[in-house]
């Protein structure tokens, strides 16, 4: 039995971080940049998450949406007490961070292959550092396609950056100024240039969207073992000890959030598993 024995249990006890910046993404969503006050946490890898603690309120899992040295960025949508507190943070405020936790996208295993990134809503956040990774070394990969679905044009995250990526964007509900695609994100697959057998796909978004997209990709010939999806369940401890995030055989805080469609397909097909 191998047991990690860090001096400070950074998996259990938060480490102080300072809010270095925050920007509004949409009405209910903000991106916060965090810098360590003292020693930083071990390095994060795209796809992994941190438990971010708002003082006195609680902590929630937030995927990293940007990694720059010791600086972590997270995009948070205000849906509960803790996310509301984090969403409302101002620069200079201190928070606690635990991590890194969970499985990563594992971009390296897609070396030399076509890449298909499919994101729905706030699901773009954990995929962003993956795209950064590809753009930093395009020579290692084949075709990169980024397909993004957003509820409305105003809900699109990182709009400037997304334009630079050349991503295909579709919205459910256009406004008067929107001249782009309208519809669900899977409809964009027809316009993406990828060779299914040579493709590794990375999918994140609402679970219904993940199910539809992964199923469609598999139908088009992408190997289910090469479709990587990021799943979400309630996480409390992030260390595999509290049991809340179980999804069938998976302990998602440890075995996820990123799993292959091979793993996810059967567990997502059982209601209330």
């Amino acid at each position: 039995m191998t047991i990690l024995a860090p001096q400070v249990s950074v998996a259990t006890v938060p480490v102080p971080y300072r809010v270095a910046g925050c920007s509004t993404e949409s009405a209910d969503t903000a991106t916060i940049a965090l810098e360590p006050v003292g020693s930083p946490l071990p390095a994060f890898t795209p796809g992994q998450y941190a438990m971010v603690y708002a003082f006195g309120v609680g902590d929630i899992p937030l995927s990293v949406c940007g990694i720059d040295g010791d600086r972590l960025t997270h995009t948070v949508r205000s849906v509960g007490a803790t996310s509301r507190a984090l969403w409302a943070l101002r620069p200079g405020t201190k928070v606690g961070v635990r991590g890194p936790f969970g499985t990563a996208w594992d971009l390296r295993s897609a070396s030399g292959r076509d890449l298909l990134v499919v994101a729905g809503g706030i699901g773009l956040a954990p995929l962003r550092p993956l795209v950064h990774g590809v753009l930093a070394a395009p020579e290692h990969y084949g075709q990169l396609n980024v397909l993004i679905g957003a509820r409305t044009p105003g809900d699109l995250l990182y709009a400037e950056e997304v334009r630079r990526w050349g991503a295909l964007v579709t919205v459910d509900r256009p406004d008067a100024a929107w001249t782009g695609d309208v519809g669900v994100v899977t409809a964009l697959l027809d316009r993406a240039a990828f060779d299914p057998p040579r493709t590794t796909a990375f999918v994140c978004g609402p679970e219904v969207m993940i199910r539809a997209a992964a199923r469609e990709l598999a139908h088009r010939g992408v190997d289910p073992g090469r479709i990587r999806v990021s799943l979400e369940r309630t996480m409390h401890c992030a260390t595999g000890h509290c049991g809340h995030c179980q999804l069938g055989p998976l302990l998602l805080c440890r075995d996820g959030p990123v799993v292959t469609w091979t793993q996810a397909q059967s567990v997502l097909s059982v209601r209330e598993l």
């Binding site: 039995m1 990690l4 000890h241 440890r254």
Partner: peptide
């Protein structure tokens, strides 16, 4: 219990 709480990547100290 040993396996659950100390056998994974994070041990419960």
């Amino acid at each position: 219990l040993d396996r659950v709480l100390t056998g994974g990547p994070h041990a419960d100290a």
